[in-house]
Amino acid sequence: MNHKIELPKIDELNFPLIYKHLGNFIKSEVLKAGLKSVVLGLSGGIDSAASCFLAVSALGKDNVTALIMPYESSSKSSIEDALKVVNTLGIKYYVSDISNQINEYFKNETDETERSENADATDGIVLKLRKGNKMARERMSILYDYSYKLNSLVLGTSNKSELLLGYGTLYGDTASALNPIGDIYKTQIYQLAEHLGIPKTIINKPPSADLWEGQSDESELGFTYKTADDIMYLLIDKMYKPEVVISLGFEENIVNNIYKRIKKSQYKRRMPLIAKVSERTINIDFRYLRDWS
């Protein structure tokens, strides 16, 4: 056993338990909703592949449906990798290209129509981000339509790293009914993926939201997931203050940047705020688990 305080590895010893635990989570929460199946978006990336493998282990291949929702700029290899997951697992899938909707919506928009007051705006980037968000929400909207159509719950595919960093679209890719991998850091997703038997091409490619050509998570974030995860494990799981994490030898500006990102994106991890007027307000002092039903 390793007693150094560092992000714990998912290895051959703890994997069987984590695997069974996550499978039972999916099965138990789906059954409690009175359903037996899930639908999820497959991007060709490692996170949705991991969620998909877990869902099949929990519910069986007949109860998992994948949606592949490419945009015209999506890389061909993403679609191939998504199909690899589908074929490996033998599950049903649908392909729904979202290019028409997105292009129609943005047809009269140019970079000149960007909102200049956006603090993060640099030339050309706002429209790109808006398009990326719109794509994520379009996919969510299709998933929820299929959720109703197939009488299935939407399975989430966001990992703990991106949820903490706010590296996701509110009501887009972060939306789901249940998420088996939301408490697992990206670094650990790679370890999990090895044990799940996810195709190597998916494990080995650099992480990307694939919202535009050549997009890379790590160059956009400005640090690697490995660094971020080591830092976030200490900040979040171990509740070390940023100055303590820095004193352990982590780069000051990265620690501060990550801590700032986590705080700034808190709204993405919570339900909308409700103004309290009555004596008993939803989620403030009207408090029940979702499983209450």
Binding site: N2, P8, N14
Partner: peptide, 12 residues
């Protein structure tokens, strides 16, 4: 509740 994992340990 089950919580916390450790490398090399086959239980929470």
């Amino acid at each position: 509740p089950a919580r916390g994992i450790t490398a090399g340990l086959n239980k929470f």
